[in-house]
Design a protein around this nucleic acid. Structure first.
Length: 271
DNA sequence: AGAGGTACCTGGCAGC
DNA sequence: TGCTGCCAGGTACCTC
């Protein structure tokens, strides 16, 4: 999926087109996403004014006076603002038309994404309630990460990718942050010293901020809402670079598997 | 409670 | 050209 920077880039792209706009039409072509799209979504949303477009972790939240539309892009989802006349393509599952001629269109070939509705405070929603802190907020401190990691035998990479620990760190940025912090991805989380956890927390923040600034990483199925590619790809140190020379020391980057996910690291720079 | 594996789904690509 | 197998940004849910 889009990881946090891609979701945030998407949010920034679509928000100006949606904020303050009234929903005039909702079209659901494929209701079977990760969970079924609410059957009465059109009824719930039509006529509502979108008051704000926010984000919690990788969930996008379209707020209205009546409730909140919760969107998740899964592995392959993307959102764009188009003219509602534009013919839908194969995997264009949901349209939310606002005003007279703007449409938020969700495309998601793999259908791991979600479109849900809640009438309550979105943070109270079952899926959002137990999420860890935002990595770019003041809540995400080295102290917090250190405390949570104590006695955990799980690898540090899987630990930072757990959204109940911290949200938004997906496979790309987990690999990158561990490289920048000089930590082997397979190290047990509980065995890292306070100092190293501090380094890691700092690099998680930095890599996500840098990626957001560059508009995310261009991936197979991801394009920002304006269709422009992200530029972060060009500065990945390890992700997707198996057998290639480390940009720092020239040692070949290693590829291994952790929890059926690809892990890349430099055996020289990461100890 | 924590750790590990499975499942959901489609498309692209390498190899034969 | 066509088939098969593997890979891909996520994460809830199940079992041990």
């Amino acid at each position: 999926m889009p990881e946090l920077p891609e979701v945030e880039t998407t949010r920034r792209g679509i928000a100006p087109h949606l904020k303050g706009q009234r929903v005039t039409k909702v079209i659901v072509r494929q209701p079977m996403l990760r969970w079924p799209v609410p059957h009465d979504l059109a009824q719930l949303l039509t006529g509502q004014v979108i008051t704000d477009v926010t984000r919690r972790g990788k969930y996008l939240l379209l707020q209205t006076a009546k409730g909140t539309l919760i969107l998740h892009l899964g592995m392959s989802g993307s959102l764009r603002i188009i003219n509602p006349q534009t013919a839908p393509e194969k995997h264009d599952h949901v349209d939310i038309v606002v005003g007279k001629n703007k449409c938020l269109r969700l495309r998601d070939p793999r259908r791991f994404g979600a479109v849900l509705w809640t009438g309550d405070e979105p943070v109270q929603h079952e899926l959002l309630r137990k999420l860890g802190p935002e990595p770019l907020s003041d809540e995400f401190t080295a102290e917090y990460l250190f405390d949570r990691s104590r006695k955990r035998k799980q690898s540090i990479k899987q630990f930072i990718m757990d959204s109940h620990i911290v949200v938004g760190v997906g496979n790309i940025y987990a690999n990158e942050a561990l490289f920048l912090a000089g930590i082997r991805p397979g190290t047990a989380a509980g065995r890292l010293t306070r100092n190293r956890v501090e380094q890691l927390a700092q690099h998680i923040r930095e890599v996500l901020e840098a990626a957001i600034k560059q508009g995310g990483t261009t991936l197979r199925d991801f394009t920002a809402s304006d269709g422009k590619p992200g530029y972060f790809q060009q500065q990945l140190y390890v992700y997707g670079r198996g057998s290639e020379a480390c940009r720092i020391c020239n040692t070949p980057i290693k590829l291994m598997r952790q929890g059926q996910r690809a892990t890349y690291y430099c055996p020289q720079c990461q100890r």
